[in-house]
Amino acid sequence: MTIDFTKDWRNVALLAVLLAAAFFLPSWLRFLLQTALAGGLVALGVMIQMRAGLVSFGQGLYYCIGGYAVGLLAAKAGVAEATLVIAAAVISSVVIALILGPLLSRYREIFFAMLTLAVSMILYGLLVKAATLGSTDGFNVPPVTFFGFLPAQEARGDWTYVLTALLVVVACFLIARYLASGAGALLEAVAENELRLEYLGSSARQAVYIVYVIAAAVSGLGGALAAIATGHVDPEMANWTTSGGFVFVALLAGRGSAIAPVLGFFLLELVRTYALDIAPNAWQLILGAVMLAVILLLPDGLWSLVRRAPK
């Protein structure tokens, strides 16, 4: 499946319009959207790796690093400036990814999935062990300031929503540009036939390394925005079940557009909150059944429905 991403900025523009309109949603729904946008960025990180045929079952690692970077700075170090904590979250994710990347980019297929999972579980184990960081209970993240300005309690939701929406649109745009670039196009070649790619003079490992680091950056950003939105971080962010959820969304939404995982995550959260009301005991069952159905009937995800629609 070859997808032309050069036009994907149009989708991102559409997303921007949608998010601006969503500012006027009822506050509970807008909050749901806000947390979903944060999670959606991680799903986006999973999605771009999937384009190279790599499934990260441990993307929660960077979600967690991003969240804890914000949490540690704001709650423990007293630095609550939004620009600084978010930058720190993205930078720490990238640094860790730069270190782990050379090891992980050697692996493909199931081994890549297993190893990403293992690394994420090690972080989970460390955090559960860390009593000073609240262990499994995690800790609370104080509200962030905007260039030194701390909005009143009532207005904080508005401010953080705008921040989240802006950064998500920017991130989606940059990812779309990346996928449209030569480096992005290489990903598909990695998935299709690595050996031929090498014969043609490109390095598959380099392509994988790059996508891994970019995915880490966008996932770290997602974790940071989630921590700011909910005001709480805990080790569950790094657990494999959380990562499984991101994979699920990436798969469900499809690989056709940078905005697909972001919208997909919101859809999923919306279904979840109502399903919990109606069938709290069968929620996972519904999720699993939908997942099977998508794999069987829509192997390219829900986004393929959008693309199939007449132009």
Binding site: F57, E109, Q284, L285, G288, L292
Partner: peptide, 30 residues
């Protein structure tokens, strides 16, 4: 289930069994 899915990509099979896991977990609970 699985019979219909042989020949799929190895990684996709992981996701399929993950879906099965979610379904079975809730079935056990039910």
């Amino acid at each position: 289930v699985l019979r219909h899915l042989y020949g799929q990509d190895e990684v996709l099979m992981v996701l399929i069994t993950y879906a099965l896991f979610l379904i079975l977990e809730d079935s056990v609970k039910l």
